[in-house]
Design a protein around this nucleic acid. Structure first.
Lengths: 112, 112
DNA sequence: CAAAGATACATAAGAATATTATGTATTTAT
DNA sequence: ATAAATACATAATATTCTTATGTATCTTTG
């Protein structure tokens, strides 16, 4: 588990990436998938995720569809066409950013 | 230039890494160095940096020394012993985190 | 079968961190 | 002389996350 500050600002990108792979997912499913894919290293809290999903919906990046499972409710999210384009851009920018940071943090000690 | 949200939570780590390389730096110098090392991709704002440096000083992670350059003032920061240990841990954790994120975001589209 | 844990949503108070704007003052370049 | 760069600082605001709380259903386990 990473200290919480590291996750800041990455949540939207993670969500967009997952949605661009699997077409439709519901919130709780996203938390499980991220835990699984990262071997429990990244754990998305629901208090962060649900407001983020609502924000993405408001921005027209995802659309939501409520489905009944027995007496329980699931809210499936899908990328809109606008969202698909946006997702690619954001993910690519983030990968670029990661590479930049890796370069910056891998620099060896210098004399001086 | 990356969209601003990406930088969130990384500032302290960048500062600690630079100080662990070069022993002592002043604030403005840090902004220039990061710009240079990242080919202008990461630009630290002074409004973010100075409060961060003050916080690190309060936590006993860095110590500060004011130097006069002509009639102007520079405030040089150095890692304390505690800070050196802390810097290594944080930088390593961050590199680990970056690798995890890269894995997560490089996953190829899946059928389903 | 009762209790605990997992599933599934939601929101609100508070903390942390950054942006943007503003301010002061000196030094260097045009 | 004026603009830009150097060098510090802080305040108001915005963003984003944590922690806590709430509701309700379904599944596992002693």
């Amino acid at each position: 588990m990473y200290s919480s500050e590291l996750i800041k600002g990455t949540l939207k990108t993670i969500v967009l990436k997952l949605l661009s792979e699997t077409k439709q997912m519901y919130g709780y499913e996203i938390t499980l998938k991220v835990k699984e894919l990262t071997s429990n290293k990244i754990q998305i809290t629901e208090g962060a995720l649900y407001p983020t999903l609502h924000a993405l919906e408001k921005e027209g990046i995802v659309s939501a569809e409520v489905i009944n499972i027995g007496k329980r409710v699931r809210k499936y999210y899908t990328l809109t066409p606008k969202g698909k384009k946006n997702a690619n851009e954001k993910v690519n920018e983030f990968i670029d950013y990661i590479n930049t940071m890796k370069f910056l943090l891998d620099i060896k000690p210098q004399v001086g």
